[in-house]
């Protein structure tokens, strides 16, 4: 067991290190902007005093290294800075209403995005594993070929194409679900679920296809091994061979694929949220990119990257844990 713990600890450290370097990359990228925010916001009428005041207020007058560590320290404490677009500079008004901080803006939206991801995962994971097992069981039949064509098409279509087709079919021609997801605080759970069902279905289409193909491939890979042949020669039914003998050994790659696809979900969410006007972190990110609200862009980037790294790390650790040879070393 000690062996596994060492490996996991190593992976965790590596993940932390990656995260640290990623934060440096993000910070450096943002600091590659020409001029600074104070000059941009004041435009033509910038007096040196006003520029200096804003610089001091936003801490732009210090060295980049110092600012990086300040930013990192604040981010760790949950303070992601002040949104440029909504900043009512303290030096002008002397007040600071809570809604101007990036954290206050991101907080509820982050929860919305997580909700969407959860709904998607609850639909997608069981469906794709069952379909993947079925496709492996009936490989090279009409069902398998149809599933192959369908999944390839839905993987390779852009998310917005799938989204508009679903809107067209399920919201416009057959008004079953609302085409827009206007979600607000204090909404009843059932209503919230109904409103986020269409974006969740879109994401499910994309993610399921991936997971299903991987599940199928992982199981088919195993079917060539001698112990499967043994099980078949014992006279077990094909379904029993796959569910009882192949699936437990295919679990490691399947878990890996599930985690990777959840990581993919984090980015796929951006386009889908924009299509459905879903008030999540992805939409905030795109809006901030358009108005160049740097602190928000920076913070969203960091959150997306953290989620991505964490999920990849989980995939790593889960596949180590599900490997009995690593769990019980000789």
């Amino acid at each position: 067991m000690g062996n596994v713990l060492t490996i996991i600890a190593q992976r965790l450290m590596l993940g932390l290190l990656t995260l640290l370097i990623v934060s440096v990359v993000i910070f450096a990228a943002v600091n590659a902007l020409p001029g600074d925010f104070a000059q941009t916001v004041l435009g033509q009428g910038a007096t040196p005093e006003a520029v200096a005041a804003i610089r001091q207020d936003l801490g732009l007058d210090r060295s980049p290294i110092q600012r990086y560590f300040d930013w990192l320290g604040d981010a760790l404490r949950g303070d992601l800075g002040t949104s440029f677009a909504q900043a009512n500079f303290a030096s002008y008004t002397g007040t600071n209403s809570g809604a101007t901080t990036v954290a206050a803006q991101i907080g509820p939206r982050f929860a919305n995005t997580m909700f969407l991801a959860m709904v998607t995962a609850t639909i997608a994971v069981p469906v794709s594993i069952i379909l993947g097992v079925l496709a492996a069981l009936y490989r090279n039949t009409v069902f398998d070929r149809a599933a192959n064509i369908f999944t390839l098409s839905s993987i390779s279509s852009p998310e917005f194409f799938l989204a508009y087709i679903l809107i067209l079919l399920l919201a416009v021609l057959n008004p079953l679900l609302p085409p827009l997801s206007n979600i607000y605080d204090g909404m009843a759970f059932s209503e919230r679920l109904e409103k986020s069902l269409l974006p969740a279905l879109t994401l499910t289409l994309v993610v399921t296809a991936h997971m299903m193909r991987m599940t199928r491939a992982a199981i088919i890979n195993l079917l060539a091994s001698p112990y499967i042949e043994m099980a078949r020669l014992k006279g077990l039914s094909p379904a029993r061979v796959i569910v009882k003998h192949a699936l437990p050994n295919a679990l490691a790659p399947i878990i890996n694929v599930v985690a990777l696809n959840l990581a993919y979900l984090i980015t796929g969410v951006v386009v889908v949220e924009v299509v459905f006007v879903y008030p999540g972190i992805g939409q905030l990110f795109v809006d901030s990119v358009k108005i160049r609200d740097i602190p928000v862009v920076q913070a969203c980037c960091l959150i997306f990257a953290t989620a991505y790294i964490l999920l990849n790390l989980t995939a790593d650790i889960m596949s180590i844990l599900s490997n009995p040879r690593l769990r019980h070393p000789k």
Binding site: I21, A263, T267, V286, V297, F304, A305, Y308
Partner: peptide, 11 residues
């Protein structure tokens, strides 16, 4: 380690 669409949007 940075999701590609996010990184592209940042840049």
């Amino acid at each position: 380690a940075i999701p590609s669409l996010i990184f592209a949007l940042l840049l």
